[in-house]
């Protein structure tokens, strides 16, 4: 999919030991607890994990958009070497407009209901580029066409509520791509879309990655979708990264028991599986997580050591005391 091998390309986003706490009703939630990963230029990285594992919080913290109840408690987020966690709000805003595009999980909430669709796109373009009004409008039409909005010129004068959920989602993606960013962070950007549209959007991202070296962090709970177009997959569990690796291996022979269970729980289009793997129980409470491995209560490979020693000590390798070998099962 991409030409240069990953290692040859420069690191664009470097998240180091990121810690985020959120003030919740039951106490301080460690939603992101020592998360480290990198995204290289032109690379598409999938971030997967079940609901509540901290994908959105990690993404929001990365680009300085945490809600007031959340704060970064440690770690660094480097974008091309600049530490975003030390930036002022106005500097961050400039970076978000021009260098990083963000597609929020709830696209509907991201659009202003009383501003015409076209203005919401041209506003971003006028603020961060030197395009004049008519050039910005032409670019907005191109963008909408590129994300698969039919009859784009007509849509510009409409309001968000006149669009279907799928079209609103595509407008949000168009806004994120407006200023030709180096990095797009997209949080479940296609979950509300039909599969045919989903495929169209992921192909667009893949094309931009290949042609313009756009880096993409694509958050999803859908391993098959992620498998279909990413270069690398990061698996999160209970606020931590438990394993990462190249997509072909992560979708055939992941080594962490949670990552493997996730794979075997996923239904296949190719064939009917005799039985799907299940993971009994629920993820731990992130207010007072257990001291050892957070997956231990649900893991069928666990030994007494897993209850006392935290396998996060093993990162960046697989965070597990008893990982599977890398052979597919």
């Amino acid at each position: 999919m991409n030409l240069a091998p990953n290692e040859d390309r420069a690191v664009l986003l470097d998240v180091q030991d990121l810690r985020v706490v959120i003030d919740g009703p039951a106490g301080l939630v460690s939603a992101s607890d020592g998360v480290s990963f990198q995204v290289r230029r032109g690379e598409i990285v999938g971030l997967v994990g079940e609901s509540g594992c901290g994908k959105t919080v990690t993404a929001l913290a990365t680009i300085g958009l945490l809600p007031p109840s959340g704060r970064i408690a440690g770690g660094r987020v480097l974008l091309g070497g600049l530490d975003l966690t030390r930036m002022r709000e106005d500097e961050l805003r400039e970076i978000r407009g021009s260098r990083v595009g963000y597609v929020p999980q709830d696209a509907t909430a991201a659009l202003n209901p009383v501003v015409r669709v076209g203005e919401q796109i041209t506003e971003v373009l006028r603020a961060h580029t030197s395009l004049d009004r008519s050039a910005a409008r032409a670019r907005a039409i191109d963008l909408l066409r590129a994300v698969g909005v039919p009859a784009p010129a007509r849509r510009l004068d409409g309001y968000p509520h006149q669009l279907s959920g799928g079209l609103r989602q595509r407008v949000a993606i168009a806004i994120a791509l407006a200023c030709d960013p180096e990095l797009v962070i997209a949080d479940e950007p296609t979950t509300a879309l039909d599969v045919t549209t989903q495929a169209q959007v992921t192909e667009l991202l893949a094309r931009l990655a290949a042609e313009r070296s756009l880096a993409v962090l694509f958050i999803s709970h859908d391993l098959s979708l992620v498998a279909s177009f990413t270069d690398r997959v990061i698996v999160m569990y209970a606020g931590q990264v438990v394993e990462e690796g190249p997509t072909p291996r992560m979708t055939s022979a992941p080594r962490h028991p949670y990552a493997r269970a996730l794979l075997h729980a996923t239904p296949r289009l190719e064939r009917k599986l005799p039985r799907l793997a299940t993971i009994e129980g629920r993820p731990p409470d992130l207010v007072s997580p257990p001291p050892g491995c957070r997956f231990e209560p649900r893991c069928d490979r666990a030994t007494p050591r897993c209850r006392t020693d935290d396998p996060q000590a093993l990162r960046p390798a697989v965070a597990c005391w008893h990982p599977f070998d890398g052979v597919s099962a």
Binding site: M1, P150, A151, S164, G166, V195, T196, Q198, A199, Q200, E203, D222, L223, S224, L225, A227, S228, F229, P248, T251, S252, L263, T266, R268, L269, E270
Partner: peptide, 24 residues
């Protein structure tokens, strides 16, 4: 055929996707 070709497969990239044309 378009639906099947658009659906993602865990085991690899889509073969060749059949696009739907025009407006929903």
């Amino acid at each position: 055929l378009a639906l099947l070709s658009s659906a993602a497969e865990v085991e690899g990239a889509r073969a060749s996707r059949i696009p739907l044309q025009g407006d929903p």
